[in-house]
Simulated scan of single mutants.
Amino acid sequence: MMPTAPRPLSPVLALDIGGANVKLADGVGYAANWPFPLWKHPKDLAEKITRCLAKAPSAESLVVTMTGELCDCFETRAEGVRSIVAATMEAAGDRSVSFYQTNGQFVSSGEATEHPLLAAASNWHALAMVAARYCETEPGLLIDVGSTTTDIIPLIASKEAAQGRTDTERMLSGELVYSGVERSPVCAVVSHLPLRGKDCPVAQEFFATTADAYLLLGELPENPADVNTADGKPFTCAAAHTRLARMICADRGIVSMHETLDFAESIRNTQVDRIEKAFRLVVAAMPVEPQTIVLSGHGEFLARRLLERLDLPLRIFSLTEEWGPVVSRCAPAHALALLALDALK
């Protein structure tokens, strides 16, 4: 994804360092999403951050959140946090750097490494704190659908009101659904696909991802230059057809495009089923039912399909419409920058 146009100077620049992307935002319009497979190249993170910073607006200070500590290149999440902190500090140069925690605090690199699990997977908290502002005094929910995961966060009294703090706690409560619109393997989403009046079991292989389904359904655009796919072939409808056909050990000569469209619809419906189950679990635990739903992430279309199915009398607020699609894709980074700017006032 191309970044928005850089601005000459920003007081703060936020980084959201994930396992597959490094996202940046300054809270006043600049946002960029740079692919980076951290689990493959952990030793190159400092260099990647340096390159990202060189293309971003100059900033007096950096604020950082992360989810990349979960990558399996690290023995523990604590090790992952310490590695990401060290890489960020190396790349930061003479800029001041603060790290965001799930208690809402900005802390030094020393404090982040001393209490690594507070810095781990903290980006959802920053986004929820900003999303809560759009609910005013009403109870609400944030539904953020990204490439890999979906967050469903209760918002009460203009603040986040999540039951969980760690990823594990949030998965147990339904507040984190480890399923997204690009990177989720199809075999992790469905066990069967519809084929000629029968349910065909899928191969337990990394042959296709949800991105292929949403490409065929017209929710994601083709990008022939993007080869970050299951088979390393271009992100085109023709190649997605092949990848989805392979999920039932077939190919495009055996399975038609119409049939793979049926596959895609089945994948979408199964993801909506899973998100609906989590939605109901989260709502059941709230002291009052939500009146406002705040949507974000480039998978917002999936959340909208859920809301159409539920047909509830809810006020819907879209961060994609409010912030624009590029910034919304980098929503946690943008939210973190807003929180940091508020702290400077």
Rank of each mutant, 00 (worst) to 15 (best):
S173Y: 10
A203L: 08
S191Y: 08
M286C: 06
A211R: 03
K198G: 05
T236S: 11
M286W: 05
A284Q: 12
F235L: 10
L215S: 01
R196T: 03
D226Y: 07
H241G: 06
P194H: 07
G297N: 04
S296E: 05
C187V: 08
P221D: 12
P234R: 01
I267L: 12
S173R: 07
E175T: 06
P221L: 07
P185I: 09
F235M: 08
P194R: 07
E169C: 07
G297R: 01
V189F: 12
R170E: 13
H192K: 12
E276H: 07
Q271P: 05
A284I: 01
S179L: 15
L295Y: 04
R170W: 12
S191Q: 15
D231L: 02
A278C: 14
P201C: 04
M257A: 14
R170F: 12
E259A: 10
L172D: 14
L195G: 01
V227K: 09
V227S: 06
A245R: 02
V294D: 06
F279D: 10
N269M: 13
S256L: 08
C187K: 10
S179K: 11
V227G: 00
R183P: 06
F206M: 12
C249S: 12
Q291N: 04
S184N: 09
V186D: 12
R165T: 11
E169T: 04
R165Y: 12
G180P: 07
L176R: 08
S184E: 13
S191T: 14
L195F: 15
P221S: 08
M257K: 10
A250Y: 05
C237P: 00
A284H: 06
C237T: 08
T292I: 09
P224A: 06
A250W: 06
A188Y: 13
R243Q: 07
I275C: 10
V177K: 08
D231G: 01
E219K: 09
V282N: 06
Q204S: 08
P194Y: 08
I275Q: 09
S191P: 00
A239R: 05
C200N: 02
I248Q: 08
C237R: 13
P224M: 03
G253S: 12
R274C: 13
A250T: 00
L220I: 01
T236K: 02
G299M: 03
A225N: 05
E182T: 10
L220T: 00
L172P: 00
E175R: 05
V227D: 03
P234T: 00
T209Y: 05
S184W: 09
V255I: 15
L215Y: 01
K198S: 13
V177T: 15
R165K: 14
G174S: 10
A230V: 00
T229A: 04
D199N: 12
I248A: 11
D199C: 02
G253N: 14
S266K: 13
E205Y: 00
V283S: 04
K198T: 11
D231M: 02
L244R: 03
D212N: 02
A239W: 02
A211P: 00
